[in-house]
């Protein structure tokens, strides 16, 4: 109960650092989810709608990457952007941009795999009807995305959930730097390591409230559009 009270106290006290951390968390999650969906939704739909050689292998590869441990993704991005890495000159390590890149490595396979599965199982009548009308592949992909938007929302929210709750990759490439790359999950980890369990739990509750608000807003937007 103390943690719940502390969580609301934190929110209502308008603590500057908390809101800065919330801002970085939302910014990182927004960009990593958006980029992953921009890549993964069309790619997944393309894989789901087309028959081609190597499709089964590609799907297995994507499913394997869906289970990629975040620390491995973080390590890969760290090695790419470290001073001696191939992209070291870009000086992106320990920035929010690097955190977004690491999260995209994790989330793009998730969005692609879930979308391909959805399209294969649910979109057959859409594809058959659209192909029968001689529509282009691009048009068919747009139709599948549009018709399945309520179901695909769960894919997007899954991606957002993975992004906002992720800690391994962002702590490796972000470094948990105060006022710069600290996000909710790395802050919780830090407070736990310091033994401030109650405060860490309060931060966790704030994170849950944040996730709930975003989920509710997304569901409402999709419902409004479907009804409208």
């Amino acid at each position: 109960m103390d943690s719940i009270k502390q969580a609301f106290d934190l929110l209502f006290s308008l603590d500057k650092e908390l809101f800065q951390i919330l801002g970085v968390t939302l910014r990182m999650s927004f960009f990593s989810t958006s980029i992953s969906c921009l890549v993964g939704l069309p790619l997944g739909t393309l894989i789901g709608t087309r028959q081609f050689r190597g499709k089964s292998f590609l799907k297995k590869l994507i499913h394997t990457c869906m289970g990629l441990p975040p620390v491995v993704a973080g390590l890969l991005v760290y090695m790419l952007f470290t001073h001696y890495g191939p992209f070291g000159r870009l000086n992106l390590l320990f920035t929010v941009t690097a955190m977004v890149i690491a999260q995209c490595v994790l989330i793009i396979p998730l969005v692609t795999g879930l979308t391909a599965s959805f399209v294969e199982s649910e979109s057959r009548p859409i594809i058959e009807t659209a192909r029968g009308l001689g529509l282009s592949d691009a048009r068919i992909i747009l139709l599948c995305l549009s018709e399945g938007r309520a179901s695909l929302l769960s894919v997007v929210l899954n991606a957002f959930g993975r992004s906002i709750a992720e800690v391994g990759a962002v702590s490796i490439v972000g470094g948990n730097i105060q006022w710069k790359t600290r996000v909710m999950t790395t802050a919780i980890m830090l407070e736990t390591n310091k033994g401030k369990f109650s405060f860490a739990l309060a931060l966790g509750i704030v994170l849950l409230i944040l996730a709930f608000i975003v989920n509710a807003a997304a569901s409402w937007i999709v419902k409004e559009r479907a009804d409208g």
């Binding site: 009548p125 859409i126 058959e128 009807t129 029968g132 009308l133 549009s146 018709e147 479907a226």
Partner: peptide, 11 residues
């Protein structure tokens, strides 16, 4: 042009 047995009604 092909009309399937179970056509789909788009939104």
């Amino acid at each position: 042009l092909y009309l399937p047995q179970h056509p789909y009604a788009f939104r």
